[in-house]
Design a protein around this nucleic acid. Structure first.
Lengths: 336, 336
DNA sequence: TGGTACAATGTAAACGTTTTTACACTATCC
DNA sequence: GGATAGTGTAAAAACGTTTACATTGTACCA
């Protein structure tokens, strides 16, 4: 049996109410009593039962975090960011992996039953009825890495500006024929990156013909196939913008296998800045995504929404999509 | 106000005791009543409050997991393994990052206060008084990736056998002069890997002279320095075994910068099988660590200890250190 | 027909907090 | 010297479950 507030009260010769007041610095307690209670707490090595506190307070000081079950080192960074933010205000983290697609049911039920004070959902692509219920019940929700277009605070990496930065840099190298290896076509990330490239090109009076846009799937292998396709073109591109580093790496391999040189014959750039990028030969020019920061800010936002919620603030219009800035990482594969 | 067991009871026209019995399949309940209760639960969209359940049951169906704050993709794999294992028995995960060294206090207090049913500690290197208290209180603890030498179930990757496998393979290539780039010298991992190499060498009548063992620190950069040192030797090694992939990569770069070829002039092998390893030129031969499995088994063990605990089992001696097998990943850097 | 056995359900006491309410005691004022 | 205000503390009512125990109802048997 663990020691409870009753034990402390008995030891200090006061009532449990007083002990509680001392612990939470609530009402006035005389210095002598406070002293006695603190001494008892120390002697008995008392630690308040968080379950009971949660029950009484209707607040658990716990943040729910959902991450996709994908094996992507990115997500670990997000977890770190979220955890760091949470721990600054003594919040803890309840984590659920989205094991199968469409298993939202499982973690939403979990979070509801365990009464997390707020939730951070990473890369969730469905807006379920359950989610709506939870929002209505007043539990703050923040999304990251995926925009559902709902009225939910959402933190995203600014793919469009990131792509523009990179494209602008390619312009500085004066490349004319630039190709794009896309991710799966329906993903917003890939589309935004393509849009960034396209806009910059057209601002420079260049265009992006359809044969220069090849669809990949973000995964290993697809960049290789896409690049082979590009190499077969009569007017093969001078530079290739891959929608992620993985495919950029593939592309470089395909180019080198074809007996050509990167960046001398064809420049290649990627997106993500995965650890591997700096080790390639040539090292890959890419766009760094602020993943840790994404987690940090999403968590901070969720936590501040908890406070506002309990203050029952008037609902002033607040920004609902926040784009985090990327940064350009210049290495050698672009021709630098 | 969320719906409680009272609401369900009223709606179904029964007492809360009966509702609880239906939910938990406890005692006998007549089919008709059960039906009515289930209907009420569905109509009201009732979800039991896990805090209250935890308080009443003295059990939270929650597993505490501590991971180091290091930015290592490895740890995400462990988290996945643990989460998968936990979710098979409907356990959820409370995660704490070890933000600063010596912050055990924080997460142990957290887990104690939130009453996790068991804990998995990853790469924890101190055995604190608090930890001992928790163990005494009967909360099962399992460790992973670090052996404290205490009487605690511990899951490790079998560094010794992994190193031996790799060393045996180098023997097949008939290398005679083999060097070792160690990690920080006091880490058991590095020592075990060195021991594996040394043992295999001596079994083949070879020795490992002191000048062939250079200390690194596992981090980027140190392998480069170590390799330069080795290259300056009058009888430079034919093969280099780096204590991790990161340093192996460094070593390859140093060799190539010196105008030599891998594996023709010097073979290089690593340990870890990080994603990057397969992308190097030449692709790195290394030892794959079963990280996901490590998390999975550690969690399974912790969960089964919970059950035994509640059964109040007699304490029969059980294995306390479990070594998970590595696997050799042959690529080209070893000369294959 | 009265007693027993048993199945089905209701009741109330835990579980360990917080918080509201009430009360006792001082000090202060006319 | 009694009303008044201000402190410090105790007591009790939440919070939402589970579960041991009590109660009811029914069937069976002597």
């Amino acid at each position: 049996m663990t020691t409870t507030i009753f034990d402390v009260a008995k030891q200090a010769g006061v009532s449990i109410g007083t002990v509680s007041r001392v612990i939470n610095n609530r009402d006035r307690v005389s210095p002598e009593t406070r002293e006695r209670v603190l001494k008892a707490i120390q002697e008995l090595d008392y630690h308040a039962n968080a379950l009971a506190q949660g029950l009484a307070n209707q607040q658990t000081n716990t943040l729910g975090l959902v991450i996709p079950q994908v094996n992507d080192p990115f997500f670990f960074q997000i977890v770190r960011g979220v955890e760091d933010a949470a721990s600054t205000v003594d919040y803890s983290l309840l984590i659920a992996c989205q094991s199968r697609p469409a298993s939202e049911h499982r973690y939403l039920d979990l979070f509801r039953r365990k009464f997390v004070d707020a939730m951070v959902l990473v890369a969730i692509d469905v807006y379920s009825h359950e989610l709506e219920q939870i929002i209505e019940r007043g539990v703050p929700i923040v999304m990251a890495q995926q925009d559902l277009g709902k009225n939910i605070p959402t933190f995203l990496v600014d793919n469009y500006r990131g792509a523009r930065q990179l494209a602008e840099h390619l312009m500085e190298h004066s490349y004319q024929r630039i190709a794009f290896i896309s991710g799966t076509h329906y993903t917003p990330d890939s589309r935004e990156r393509l849009r960034g490239l396209r806009d910059v090109l057209s601002e420079h009076g260049l265009e992006l013909p359809a044969r220069y846009v090849v669809e990949g799937d973000y995964l290993r292998g697809s960049g290789h196939r896409a690049m082979q396709q590009l190499l077969e073109l009569p007017d093969r591109p001078e530079a290739v913008f891959a929608a992620n580093d993985q495919m950029a790496i593939d592309a470089i391999m395909a180019i080198q296998e074809a007996g050509l040189k990167v960046p001398d014959d064809i420049a290649v750039v990627g997106f993500d800045d995965i650890p591997m990028a700096s080790y390639l030969s040539p090292p890959l020019t890419t766009v760094h995504q602020p993943i840790y920061e994404l987690g940090w800010h999403a968590a901070k936002a969720a936590l501040s929404l908890i406070k506002e919620e309990s203050k029952d603030n008037g609902s002033m219009a607040a920004p609902h999509v926040m784009l985090l800035p990327t940064s350009l990482v210049l290495r050698r594969s672009c021709g630098c």
